[in-house]
């Protein structure tokens, strides 16, 4: 949404987009990589779909629609590249610490939930993911882990009856 009026005074998320200075087009490597990924996705769609039976326009096989879609996606990706080559968006930050810790927490949860049960999985998730942000002390993390274990056992196992054990030996 771009309003023709410069919004005065406020600096909220909705304020007018920054004016692009059309002096030099800087290459934004991240943007290009993403656009190329979309192109590759389109290519993969075409490659895989051509292994399915295509059929005719009248009687489409399972490969027809994905084939068309893959072609469209490739075309859009090319257009994106054109657009992106002129954009001057700054590269977004990649917050490594939260990224790794949250992902690790989720992976551990997935690994533990059927092996050791709900409570160990929840505790592992809370501790690992909370370490993604340095503000919380061990006591606070422990408290959140405890509260969430109780809440999830009561809500999901007792109230909703999910076939899972709180602890599994």
């Amino acid at each position: 949404m771009s309003s023709p009026h410069p919004s005065s005074g406020a600096n909220g998320a909705a304020s007018a987009p920054p004016r692009q200075t059309p002096v030099t087009a800087s290459l934004n490597r991240g943007e290009i990589v993403v656009a190329v990924c979309f192109f590759l996705l389109g290519g993969a769609l075409i490659a895989i779909a051509s292994g399915y039976s295509i059929g005719s326009l009248r009687r489409m096989g399972p490969g027809y629609f994905p084939l068309v879609l893959g072609g469209l996606l490739c075309a859009v990706a090319v257009a994106l590249l054109v657009e992106v080559l002129r954009s001057r968006n700054p590269a977004p930050p990649l917050p490594w610490r939260p990224f790794t810790m949250v992902s690790l927490g989720i992976l551990c949860f997935a690994f533990l939930i059927e092996r050791l049960g709900m409570v160990p999985a929840v505790i592992a998730l809370v501790i690992l993911s909370a370490l993604g942000d340095r503000t919380l002390g061990p006591l606070a993390i422990g408290a959140i882990a405890l509260v969430m274990s109780v809440v999830s056992v009561l809500l999901f196992i007792t109230a909703l009856g999910i076939p899972l054990a709180a602890f599994k030996g």
Binding site: V102, G105, I106, F109, A110, I113, M118, A121, V122, L125, V126, S129, A130, D133, T135, L136, A140, I141, I144, A145, V147, M148, V151, S152, F156, I162, L164
Partner: peptide, 16 residues
């Protein structure tokens, strides 16, 4: 930072 570990628990248990 207190809220998000709690949300993550709901996300994971919910998805499962």
């Amino acid at each position: 930072h207190i809220l998000y570990p709690m949300i993550l628990v709901f996300v994971c248990v919910g998805v499962y």
